[in-house]
Design a protein around this nucleic acid. Structure first.
Length: 938
RNA sequence: GCCUUGGUGGCGGAACUGGUAGACGCGCUGGAUUCAAAAUCCAGUUCUUUCGGGAGUGUGGGUUCGAUUCCCACCCAAGGUACCA
């Protein structure tokens, strides 16, 4: 019979499910360990071989941790809100919930087949009302909070109201909209309810504002910056334009500094931390005020180089700035208006396309230099962005390349304030020590660092500016014009948003007939007939009943994809709690995620937003820690290898790969299952695959049609998806698990190929044969030989170290060596085979369970203690004498310390083994380095 | 451009704090077994060679008795980011 993986795997998967082997408890004498995977979006294409990569790795680690005495939480769920299900609904009219359910069932089936040790009793789905009621609840908490800059934490908005009533906002240090005006307690108390609410909206951590958004007309929705790639939508590749809309936003900017600082406390990959740092984009510099000539106002600019203040020869404003209209002189008005008109018409895409083109217009106005009182011309130019800093820059052409190019282009004077530098070709933008300032008043002779502190001190003393810190991170837009997402629990009374109360959650998604935006441009929820809030009956009622007194329209936007995923990892701790998103006790027990595994593509999305919510919920006392994931590992994607056929233009003739040179052909992707491992196409199968190929004729080379290959992301639309089911069928889950780990380091992206599968498969067969050489268990109770013990303990050492380091590919090599050696030793002692089975069980759990039970054990192997490495079994044959010889010879450190070169030479010549290796030759040179190793050059 | 990571046989990839480069697997070659094939087992496999050797970890330098590993400069690839003042 041999190794019957199908029977074994089915048997143990069933056994685990029935005995609830992997259910975690929320209390235990053992230390806790929480290992988390990024939960999948259940797409219609099903699971492909890339998905399980991370899950296999985390499963190995979770199983290892159970073996080493931890109470392990290893849950799984589904990020089940999302655009694809909605797109599918638009096309087919099927409710997204229905398709999502079907997809989840399929995912579950595929996941189960791989033998994961998930605790499914804690499964979560973000689209489940029992889950999203808590997403909505967190949204309300954010709405009821503001950020106090003095205490550097989020506080309740009711506290802020108390302050306003007593002393107005004059002393309030809080994150708020830039437009918020100052008011006294008296003012506040005289404001109408409506005015008060509008002011509070400027302070809330989630707020409504008119924002310029990335609008994608084809998708009918707003996109976040990270959903846009190269100026087109990540999904579908549709054009994106700017549009002003009323949107919910999250004040993530309030947490910029803490998000940055927090990175120092967590063990995440350096590259990912760097990405987040860049995204937050902290710059230290100064705000400088330039009074505008003949105007009451002054122009405020942000600069990272206040030391170059004396080098300013012009100012540039972003064309969108309101101030531009105010200060433009009548003579320049026409030119300025024309320029503004031109820039607004240009889409983001156009603007990116010609970064090199320099454009701008003089406004006719002048600013007064705060230190020299010189008149500085004010220009506008679209290289200045309205959304960063103050939307205005002081231009120092000698020190900034963009300013330099602008000045050259418009023949504006350039003043060199850097002594002994050449700026005839380009600006001098380095901050090197040694370069002294000149022509810079009281800064003359100073270098960068000194000049910075001196000038900032001076600005602050003369009240013309101050040192400041600026962040690139913008507030996150939270509204989506989509159906398949969490409804925002708000209704509108007199145009102002009013939150629902906690007891009214969840606010469930209404039924709609049509998932597209309405004819008048409202989001899909505008199609719902039952989408109004009755404040008396406290329930959702029909839109027809809306009046101005008690029944109001509900918010029609839904939440973005990252809402549910920003906190789901706490729900696993207490998945069925109906009273809170997680109980205090469960959160106190599990605390945080010890190890989080997922792709780096979420670096500036999910992984940043979730840290933000975490800090907020921590501030409000709902969670015990400020960072939720101690350690994070990025697993690399498994890429697909797409296959191409080449159609001769305008014909039904397909040329083999080697024949396309010099021909006009169009490459067409074909399903990879139609191609064999040597890139040969099954032509008959292709004809049947799609109607467009039914009339195809093939031009072969050497009797076969060779396809072209290209490595790219695995995706249904690229026909390069390889699905794990067939591999489980042919080789078994244990082989697939080990093979995916054997493919290479976990962090690395790698193309999928099945070429090496047979190696892993034959390893498992050899393992089986080691226990059952003649289809029957053959195990002796004798004491094992020293060599077998040595092999075992070497393997224990290597496997333990490699698991701890997540170096699973080398770990599997160690297993292969071990089995080869034990086979060669004809080892069949229980004392060796039993520990070996435990070592193997995290990787190949099914075969390990089977062998464990064959060895006569009752119960699952999964909780058995992991074998411990014992050095005494490693026979120290190499202790005092040459480890080996190959032109060089190595001694232990102790020996090298004690002996001189001459003495060592004597030992070498006296040693029989060495003599043999030297084959009669005498060493030419002996090099002794005290405390190190000795080289003998033969 | 900037930031991050990486560059080792025909291929995927090993090599701990500098110490026998190429572990392990695939592929390939030869052999055993078989009527034959599959499966299995054994041996070989960086390149080069006049069989003594010689060269070799992207390129060029440097430090060291000794460098894939450390330092400098450059080239290339992947991912991120971009008129961010």
């Amino acid at each position: 019979m041999g190794y019957n993986f199908q029977e074994i795997e089915q048997k143990w998967q069933q056994n685990w499910a029935e005995s609830k082997t992997f259910q975690a408890s929320n209390s235990s004498d053992k230390p806790k360990y929480y290992i988390l995977d990024m939960f999948p979006y259940p797409s219609g294409a099903g699971l492909h071989v890339g998905h399980p990569l991370g899950y296999i790795a985390s499963d190995i680690y979770a199983r290892y941790k159970r073996h080493t005495g931890f109470n392990v939480l290893h849950p799984q769920g589904y990020d089940s809100f999302g655009l694809p299900a909605e797109q599918y609904a638009i096309q087919t009219g099927q409710h997204p919930e229905l398709t999502t359910r079907t997809n989840i069932a399929r995912y579950r089936e595929q996941l189960d087949r791989l033998g994961f040790s998930f605790d499914w009793s804690r499964e979560v789905r973000t689209s489940d009302p029992n889950f999203y009621r808590w997403t909505q609840w967190i949204f309300l908490q954010l709405f009821h909070s503001y950020y106090d800059k003095n205490e550097d934490k989020a506080k309740l908005i009711t506290d802020l109201i108390t302050v306003f009533e007593q002393e107005g906002n004059l002393n309030v240090q809080a994150e708020c909209a830039t437009s918020t005006a100052a008011f006294t307690a008296k003012d506040w108390n005289s404001f109408s309810e409506e005015q008060q609410q509008l002011i509070l909206l400027d302070y809330r951590l989630t707020y409504i504002s008119e924002t310029e958004v990335n609008w994608c007309a084809e998708l009918g929705t707003v996109l976040a910056n990270d959903e846009i790639v190269n100026g087109v939508s990540e999904r579908g590749g549709f054009p994106v334009t700017k549009k002003k809309m009323k949107q919910w936003s999250m004040r993530i900017g309030a947490y910029a500094e803490r998000l940055l600082q927090g990175l120092e406390t967590i063990d995440w990959p350096e590259s990912l931390k760097e990405m987040q740092r860049n995204w937050i984009g902290k710059s230290v510099g100064a705000l400088v005020r330039f009074p505008v000539e003949n105007h009451g106002t002054s122009l405020e600019v942000f600069t990272t180089r206040p030391d170059t203040l004396f080098g300013v020869t012009f100012m540039t404003l972003a064309p969108e700035l309101d101030l531009v209209q105010e200060i433009t002189t009548p003579e320049q008005k026409e030119a300025v208006d024309a320029y503004i008109e031109r820039t607004t018409q240009r889409t983001e895409r156009d603007r990116m396309a010609d970064v090199k083109t320099i454009s701008g217009v003089f406004t006719g106005a002048y600013a007064i230099h705060p230190l020299t009182q010189e008149r500085i011309p004010i220009w506008i130019g679209d290289y200045v962005l309205a959304g960063y800093g103050t939307g205005a820059v002081m231009a120092v052409p000698c020190g900034d390349q963009r300013d330099y190019a602008f000045a050259k282009h418009f023949a504006i004077p350039i003043k060199n304030i850097f002594a002994d530098t050449d700026i005839s070709e380009e600006a001098y933008s380095d901050k090197n020590a040694g370069v002294k300032l000149q022509d810079s008043g009281f800064l003359n002779g100073l270098e960068y660092t000194e000049a910075m502190t001196t000038v900032i001190a001076h600005l602050e003393k003369t009240q013309t500016g101050e040192g400041t810190i600026n962040y690139r991170l913008r507030d996150a837009i939270f509204s989506r014009q989509r159906y398949w997402g969490e409804p925002i629990p708000m209704y509108y009374k007199n145009g102002l948003p009013v939150p629902l109360e906690e007891k009214h959650l969840p606010l469930e998604l209404p039924k709609v007939e049509n998932y597209l935006p309405t004819a008048d441009g409202a989001p899909p929820l505008g199609n719902a007939t039952e989408w109004a809030w009755d404040t008396q009956k406290e329930k959702v009622v029909s839109n027809d009943l809306i009046d101005q007194e008690i029944i109001f329209p509900l918010e029609m936007n839904t939440m973005p994809g990252w809402a549910g995923s920003s906190w789901y990892f706490y729900r696993y701790m207490d998945a069925t709690n109906a009273d809170s998103f997680v109980s205090k006790e469960a959160a106190a027990y599990w605390q945080d995620v010890d190890l989080y595994l997922g792709g780096s593509e979420h670096a500036t999305g999910h992984l940043l937003y979730s840290r933000f919510w975490q800090k907020f919920l921590f501030d409000q006392g709902h969670l015990p820690v400020e960072e939720y994931a101690k350690k994070l590992i990025n697993q690399g994607m498994i890429l697909g290898s797409s296959a191409f056929v080449y159609r001769k233009k305008g014909t039904q003739q397909y040329l083999s790969k080697g024949l396309i040179d010099g021909e006009e052909v169009e490459p067409i992707r074909v399903d990879v299952s139609l191609v064999n491992a040597s890139n040969e196409l099954d032509c008959e199968a292709l004809k049947k695959w799609q109607p467009q190929f039914s009339e195809a004729s093939f031009v072969l080379e050497a009797e076969v049609y060779n396809v072209g290959r290209e490595v790219e992301k695995m995706s249904k639309s690229k026909y390069n998806v390889v699905n794990p089911d067939q591999i489980c069928e042919d080789f078994g889950a244990d082989t697939l698990r080990m093979y995916e780990m054997f493919l290479g380091p976990i962090e690395q992206a790698k193309p999928w190929n099945t070429a090496g599968m047979s190696g892993v498969y034959s390893f498992l067969k050899k393992t089986w044969k080691l226990f059952l050489p003649a289809n029957e268990l053959f195990v002796s109770e004798e004491n094992p030989s020293p060599e077998s013990l040595k092999t075992l303990h070497q393997t224990i050492k290597k496997v333990t170290e490699d698991i701890e380091n997540f170096s699973f590919n080398t770990c599997i090599s160690a297993f292969m060596i071990c089995v080869n050696e034990l086979s060669a030793q004809k080892c069949n002692q229980r004392a060796i085979l039993e520990p070996f089975t435990i070592l193997l069980s995290p990787f190949a759990p099914h075969i390990a369970e089977e062998l464990w039970s064959l060895l006569g054990h009752k119960g699952s192997i999964s909780q058995v203690d992991f074998p411990v490495f014992d050095e005494k079994f490693l026979v120290e044959s190499t202790k005092n004498y040459p480890i080996s010889f190959n032109g060089k010879m190595r001694f232990t450190r102790e020996l090298a310390l004690d002996l001189s070169a001459k003495e060592i030479e004597k030992i070498i010549l006296a040693d029989e083994q060495t003599q043999e290796q030297l084959q009669g030759r005498t060493p030419k040179k002996v090099i002794v380095v005290p405390g190190k190793i000795i080289n003998i050059v033969g």
